[in-house]
């Protein structure tokens, strides 16, 4: 490690490493979704396991249900986030950087709102955590759901803030949507990943909304 910090790279190598980094974002997004999906699969397994075992007849006595309206709003926030992020990406691909920025800030807001509602809901439950299998599992799922929404909001917010800082640097090269600078290409790869991730959040939110509020 005694060589100079800077590396003299031919243009092909820079282009090659940029493609590798884009691929890493693409693959990393899918793998991250896999990781989180497995954690939520653990919760889903617990739902069906406790429900089928129904220990002492205490899976869900008296049809306990968390506040439906709040739950619907939380799932709705996730859905709105996904739609906004995807719409923003759609506009970015057409060169409308400002539209993407507005949509992404709004997505981050939807994520924070959903997270806040989820935390608030946990204070408004009509049951105690250890009252039943359902009650226990709902109390376990709530913070995970809030954390997932917060991760989505963080991803969107950091992208939007990064876009603000990059704006002048890429302005002469076609802007965020068209610049071929490595940082702009990686930014777009990350924006695409964020949209994909938001659909994953929505899928999880809606599936567990069905399990906890509707079924």
């Amino acid at each position: 490690m005694a060589d100079a910090p800077g590396l003299m790279e031919p243009a092909e190598e820079i282009a090659y490493e940029t493609r590798c980094a884009e691929g890493a974002i693409w693959t990393g997004t899918r793998l991250l979704i896999g990781v989180i999906a497995m954690a939520f699969a653990g919760v889903g397994f617990a739902y069906f396991y406790l429900r089928s075992v129904n220990s002492e007849g205490l899976w869900r006595p008296h049809g306990q249900t968390a506040p439906l309206l709040l739950g619907t709003e939380i799932a709705g926030a996730a859905l709105v986030g996904a739609i906004l992020q995807s719409y923003g990406l759609f506009r970015l691909r057409r060169g409308l950087d400002l539209d993407w920025s507005v949509a992404t800030w709004a997505t981050a807001g939807a994520g924070v709102l959903g997270c806040g509602l989820q935390i608030w809901e946990l204070t408004r439950l009509g049951f105690q955590p250890g009252q039943s299998g359902y009650a226990s599992l709902f109390v376990a799922w709530g913070p995970l759901s809030a954390a997932l929404l917060l991760v989505g909001a963080y991803w969107s917010e950091t992208l939007a803030a990064r876009a603000l800082r990059m704006k002048s640097a890429v302005a002469g090269d076609g802007g965020l949507s068209a610049s071929q600078l490595p940082r702009a290409r990686l930014f777009r790869a990350s924006a695409e990943g964020a949209a994909y991730f938001w659909w994953f959040i929505t899928t999880v939110s809606v599936l567990f909304w069905l399990l906890f509020y509707i079924v």
């Binding site: 617990a46 205490l58 869900r60 009252q131 039943s132 299998g133 009650a135």
Partner: peptide
């Protein structure tokens, strides 16, 4: 910590979980 009963059979949970 939060007094859930996910692994407590007597309260609707299951140690086998």
């Amino acid at each position: 910590t939060a007094q859930t009963a996910l692994f407590v059979n007597a309260h609707g949970g299951s140690s086998f979980l």
